[in-house]
């Protein structure tokens, strides 16, 4: 049944409206970033000149490029490891019978439900035993995999078309080859989603890097920028500008990935 032209127009308008509402807070962020002081937070006016001032102030702060670099290392490191390892584990859990499969999946779901707050101290002790306090390993490795990632990939991998996997096997491909050549391309949307989300999660992670890193040379953006907001003394506009600037790299990444993402989706959509 072909949807009527009117119906699709209405649908398009409604969708655009929803998206517009969702983008309003983003605009509010621009407005706050150009606020002169803390009494100027309510307005929706945007002052480009003042925003420019805040920008140059922000980049003039010695630490900013360093924090940016650290954030890139941390977020990329975690995202890459996550895709590789959670991807592999998720696929195995969904498609390959191996001893301990049920236990591992139970642990994954259990982990998902475990409060990160309460494992903070035990995890710190583990990282200390490994000698990784105050290092990139200490910040990255504890997040190199996640229950979320394994679970996400598993759910998607459950829906992989058997025929394709089977025909690859019939063609004599080894299991690892089936995984890399058949499953991974089909799982691309899930893996890219995972990559983006984990990149973002680390880009936004404040507590763990703060606890583990003892020198500013290791600090990622959230820790470094939280310095702008001291207890009773902060520049609202500057904090807003920092928030906005911080949001740019993940947004760019998202738009870049989007192209491959859609390609991946259509590829996955070919299957029956």
């Amino acid at each position: 049944m072909r949807p009527s032209r009117l119906g699709s127009a209405v649908r398009g308008t409604l969708l655009s409206l929803v998206v517009a509402v969702m983008l309003l807070p983003v605009y509010a962020m621009l407005a706050v970033a150009s606020a002169s002081d803390a009494t100027d937070l309510g307005g929706l006016g945007f002052d480009a000149a003042r925003f420019g001032e805040h920008l140059s102030q922000l980049f003039g702060q010695g630490g900013f490029p360093l924090y940016l670099r650290n954030s890139v290392i941390l977020s990329l490191g975690v995202a890459v490891l996550e895709v590789v390892f959670s991807g592999a584990a998720g696929y195995a859990l969904a498609q390959l019978p191996f001893p301990g499969r049920r236990v591992l999946f139970a642990v994954v779901v259990g982990t998902l439900s475990l409060s990160p707050i309460v494992v903070l101290v035990p995890m710190y002790l583990v990282v200390r035993q490994l000698g990784w306090i105050d290092s990139f390993q200490g910040m990255i490795v504890p997040f190199a995999m996640s229950a979320f990632g394994v679970f996400l990939v598993r759910q998607f991998a459950l829906s992989l078309p058997r025929e394709l996997l089977l025909s690859a096997r019939v063609d004599g491909a080894g299991e690892l080859r089936v995984f890399l050549r058949v499953a991974v391309p089909l799982l691309r949307p899930a893996l890219l989603t995972l990559f983006l989300l984990q990149f973002l999660a680390q880009w936004d992670n404040l507590l763990w890097p703060l606890v583990v890193a003892n020198r500013p040379g290791l600090w990622p953006l959230p820790v470094g920028l939280s310095q702008l907001q001291t207890e009773y003394d902060f520049s609202a506009g500057l904090v807003g500008t920092a928030a906005l600037v911080t949001a740019v790299p993940p947004l760019v990444l998202m738009f870049v990935l989007q192209r491959y993402y859609v390609a991946g989706l259509t590829l996955g959509g070919v299957k029956k």
């Binding site: 710190y124 200390r128 703060l210 606890v211 500013p216 207890e231």
Partner: peptide, 25 residues
């Protein structure tokens, strides 16, 4: 002397974790 500035509302959590892990400043 190596100083480290920690945001005021996070100083306690960082100190406590460090104390628990036997690695305070």
């Amino acid at each position: 002397v190596t100083p480290l500035y920690v945001p005021v509302d996070k100083l306690d959590a960082k100190l406590l974790t460090a104390f628990a892990g036997d690695a305070p400043p």
